[in-house]
């Protein structure tokens, strides 16, 4: 938690780089050795570049008919809350933009974990680690599956999380070892 707060403070103070620099940095990421201090700094720089790019992108948007996410589906998810009565036309539009940024931020943080374990495929455990390391993602803890091979207490600590991810785990489509799944839906997806 403290690390997250420090990271956020650093983010606030730093000035973002242009998107082009961001792309170069992303390409050079695989070359960086998997050590904690450089990785954090690299992740912070990526996020700063990301948010700077988002601010610029929002200013240049002129077409609101094409969204990266379907508004009708967003409406249905909003409607699952029974307390919600009516929403204005702009609400799903704002949500579409917010969800896009949410997916991107989550993916950037997860990919940092993929690189830390020298992996080439972003997997669920990378997401679980990213979520445990980010304060604003605490609301997702309840829906995250508990992996027997990766106890939750270890997830809370970044260093321990890395220790529990040896290089030989670089295998695609890791099977679910846990007999019980916190989220029934995932259990159904497992056979597929």
């Amino acid at each position: 938690m403290d690390q997250n707060k420090q990271g956020e403070a650093a983010e606030g103070g730093n000035i973002g780089h242009p998107a082009h620099g961001k792309n170069q940095e992303e390409q050079s990421n695989p070359m960086i050795a998997p050590t904690n201090p450089p990785k954090k700094k690299s992740l912070e720089e990526q996020l700063n570049d990301f948010w700077a790019a988002q601010r610029e992108e929002a200013k240049m948007t002129t077409n609101f008919k094409t969204h990266s996410l379907p508004l009708s589906r967003i409406k249905k998810i909003i409607k699952t809350d029974k307390d919600v009565k009516m929403i204005s036309a702009e609400t799903p539009v704002v949500f579409a933009k917010a969800c896009e940024m949410f997916i991107k931020e989550l993916t950037i943080r997860a990919w940092a974990n993929t690189e830390a374990r020298k992996g080439k495929i972003l997997s669920q455990r990378d997401l679980v680690s990213a979520i445990s390391q980010t304060a604003s993602f605490d609301f997702l803890d309840d829906i995250m599956p508990k992996d027997a091979g990766l106890p939750r207490t270890s997830i809370a600590s970044t260093e321990n999380a890395y220790l529990n991810m040896p290089p030989q785990q670089n295998v695609a489509g890791l099977p679910y070892d846990a007999p019980t799944m916190a989220f029934p839906n995932l259990n159904h997806h497992a056979p597929n």
């Binding site: 997916i103 669920q124 609301f139 995932l186």
Partner: peptide, 23 residues
Amino acid sequence: VIPPNGKISKDAKETVQECVSEF
């Protein structure tokens, strides 16, 4: 937001689907 040569597992996409709905 990942490198061009990066790949995403199916379970990761499904997990993000659930995360977005929760968000």
